[in-house]
Design a protein around this nucleic acid. Structure first.
Lengths: 137, 137
DNA sequence: TTAAGTGTAATAAACACAATTACAGTTTTG
DNA sequence: CAAAACTGTAATTGTGTTTATTACACTTAA
């Protein structure tokens, strides 16, 4: 199993969109089938991105900060996804080797292109659209 | 550090393309800065994809099976990348929850679109093109 | 026949991610 | 104002994935 944060975040926001109100982390965690603390950490990231508002204290929880038509999957992705689509090569080059010394830059360009392609795709999908798809089964 | 297999594989093939001959796993490993066994495992995958040929025994090693103009990054990606661009949600849905029960299918569609976008990008880049870029610094 | 390779299994080490526990701080409500 | 019900957050543990390493049987050129 790999990084599920994006899935979790979209799931959470979809619940908030459907509910149209304040939902607590316990309830969200049950829907996502994970731990409330995991949810709360994601909520912080989503709040920092301006997608939700949270309220502490009794009857507290989270709610959408704007219309689902104005929330794209790209915004969610940017809020929570820590990893690039294609991993960058972090390791030291072998100095004597021509290819080794230059491949990193070249591959960074490739990775950037992949990233751009994915971002473009995600930018075209709104939370509202997701809601609609779910309603239709 | 995350999955480096694609980076490793491209690096290896670039060395083979530049060298235009048989290179052993030891030498490749030094260029990539990893272990020869890791390289050999990748070589098996690349061979299975028809991109290289290997030879056992003394003076053995690997060489390209075809012209670098006819090797795309997508072929390399397919040969070695085990993971989807966006993780699928594997976990059990909460039965009582409408969103939970349907989000999986919807997100699978989203992930598929992202995958397609990346694949299209990679299909447009040949190994030969990479060589050129590296030569130019 | 020997030296220098590959192929491959088995295991260990490193790392990333998710889950859990614990508790201080906040806010509503009776 | 006190209690109940939340969030915010640190610290730790559990789990799975990826990479590295060791070992050795098998292959081939010289």
């Amino acid at each position: 199993m790999v990084n599920q944060q994006f899935n979790f975040a979209v799931h959470i926001l979809t619940v908030l969109a459907v509910t149209r109100g304040v939902v607590d982390s316990q309830t969200l965690a049950r829907s996502v089938n994970t731990n409330p603390v995991v949810v709360r950490r994601l909520l912080l990231a989503l709040r920092a991105a301006g997608l939700i508002e949270t309220q502490a204290g009794k009857n507290g929880g989270a709610k959408l900060a704007r219309d689902p038509r104005r929330i794209t999957l790209l915004q969610i992705y940017d809020a929570v996804e820590p990893r690039p689509v294609l991993a960058l090569n972090e390791r030291k080059a072998a100095r004597h080797c021509f290819v080794s010394c230059n491949i990193k830059t070249v591959m960074a360009t490739v990775a950037e292109g992949a990233e751009t392609a994915v971002r473009k795709h995600l930018r075209g999908i709104t939370l509202h659209r997701l809601q609609q798809k779910i309603r239709r089964g």
